[in-house]
Amino acid sequence: MAVSGAVLVFFLVAHMAGNLKIFAGAESFNGYAAWLREVGYPLLPHRGLLTLLEAGLVVAIAAHMYSAIVLARRAAHARPVKYAAKVRSRADGYATRTMRWGGVIIFFFVIYHLLDMTFGVANPEGHAATPFDRMVAGFEPARWYITVFYVISVVMVGLHLRHGLWSALQTLGLARRHPVLKAGATGLSALLTIGFLVVPLAITFGVVR
């Protein structure tokens, strides 16, 4: 869980950084997307590294989901009889309690998101357009509801990360001074959330067009 999660976190950081290039203009962003596809060429085939990364991500996501399912099943097995009274949470943390369902929601978001941005199927510009155009079209003001959907999803991801990051440190036995680390995890998740949010918001509000 922690290991696959960590891979995903590294991806997110890189991904956010890439997204932010949109503020540097269409060239830069498209260049970045192209670079992603060409890097390592001719050592690696066209899209070589990207495919590798994608494969890695798929594996990480699959592993992540697999671990989540194993944990949930172990939990169900460990408590065959449920409490009659509604169990009241005593720990602080909406984030913690929404890990499981949050994860599922994020999964569906990712699928939509891939259809939207990577394959262009759900994107008005379609598959042929440049990444920049797809992105701008995807979040154009008229499609505000898409933006809202992204915002909600990204916030979900932020919450998922807030607990996930710290939890991974715990699981790997690295968390010792937990208030400090907890703050660190919250900070990084906030950073990622904001980093991801500014792009669609900027497009929807016409800052980037």
């Binding site: 869980m1 097995h77 949470s89 602080d92 939890s167 699981t171 968390a175 010792r176 937990h178």
Partner: peptide
């Protein structure tokens, strides 16, 4: 047959002796 830990913190919150989560790390 105990379940796996996902660091939810519910344990510390009800622990009558306040055993901290650090111990799990």
């Amino acid at each position: 047959g105990f379940g796996g830990c996902t660091n939810t913190g519910e344990c510390t919150a009800v622990c009558p002796k306040g055993i901290p989560l650090d111990t799990i790390a």
